[in-house]
């Protein structure tokens, strides 16, 4: 057997992943903090004022990365779900469970910052624009997944039921997105475009990209922390968790 494959599966065991995740958390936390500070500085002090939208546009430095992340996390969750169903690994389901609250938070944040942006720019908190609507539906999908997971008491059943829901959801997302888009264009014709009128200044783009990486690092750090807790909770009856806890108490 190929040695890389063995290494990969070695980490898929909760007992080896737990300390590995513990070592990774501080790294990603620091990366997140440093990048966040740089990105905030760039976006508030360096990036030029938009000639059309004034200072208010600066919320996109948070809005866009957060919206990207909210979509991306769902796809990653579905990927973990597929891995979990195929290889029957416990850790995959724990990962998708750990990702869900962060994804839901980002979906909510993207709607919230979008509303804050929309009020000064469009004069309204909410427009039934295709993107806004599909973000809202994405939030519903996250909430459905979390609700299903918490309704099932047997964790094994919850994992696999959640995995099927995620896979069904990820197949549906493009269909939902396009149907919402067509619905929107059929209803009201040209709405205000969220992008495309102005080509973006380079510093704006850099600030946004750095913020995106900050959001990534934050997500990884938080998810690893959460998955550690889930591992401890699920594996509490195993010997390695017991010895770990006893060692921790002694220290």
């Amino acid at each position: 057997m190929n040695s890389r494959l063995i290494n990969w599966f070695k980490l898929s065991s909760p007992a080896t992943f737990y300390p590995f995740a513990g070592r990774m958390v501080p790294w990603f936390s620091w990366i997140a903090i440093i990048l966040l500070v740089i990105a905030l500085y760039l976006s508030f002090f360096v990036a030029p004022t938009d000639y059309k939208q004034g200072e208010g546009y600066r919320i996109i430095f948070i809005h866009v990365p957060v919206a990207w992340m909210s979509m991306f996390i769902y796809v990653i969750m579905a990927g973990w779900a597929a891995v979990g169903l195929v290889y029957n690994t416990r850790l995959s389901a724990m990962m998708s469970e750990a990702l869900a609250p962060t994804g839901a938070m980002f979906a909510f944040l993207s709607l919230w910052t979008g509303a804050l942006w929309g009020k000064p720019m469009w004069g309204t908190w909410w427009v039934w624009d295709a993107r806004l609507t599909s973000s809202l539906i994405l939030l519903f999908l996250y909430i459905g997944f979390i609700a299903l997971k918490s309704a099932i008491e047997d964790p094994r059943r919850a994992d696999r039921a959640g995995a099927i829901l995620l896979l069904v959801g990820v197949i549906n997302i493009p269909i939902i997105y396009f149907s919402v888009r067509w619905w929107n264009t059929l209803h009201q014709g040209a709405t205000i475009k969220m992008s495309g009128q102005t080509s973006m200044d380079e510093t704006m783009l850099i600030a946004m990209l750095i913020m995106t990486f900050a959001v990534w690092a934050y997500t990884i750090a938080v998810v690893l922390l959460r998955v550690r807790t889930i591992i401890l909770e699920r594996e509490r009856d195993t010997t390695w968790v017991r010895t770990l806890l006893q060692e921790g108490n002694r220290r």
Partner: peptide, 30 residues
């Protein structure tokens, strides 16, 4: 699909609606 996933759960009906309704949006739209 939703009914199969929520089979035998407490409050399965409401949960099923919560899971399935976002997925049926395209049907509603068209």
């Amino acid at each position: 699909i939703g009914a199969a996933l929520t089979l035998g759960l407490r409050g399965g009906g409401v949960l099923n609606a919560l899971l399935v309704m976002p997925l049926t949006i395209p049907v509603l739209i068209f």
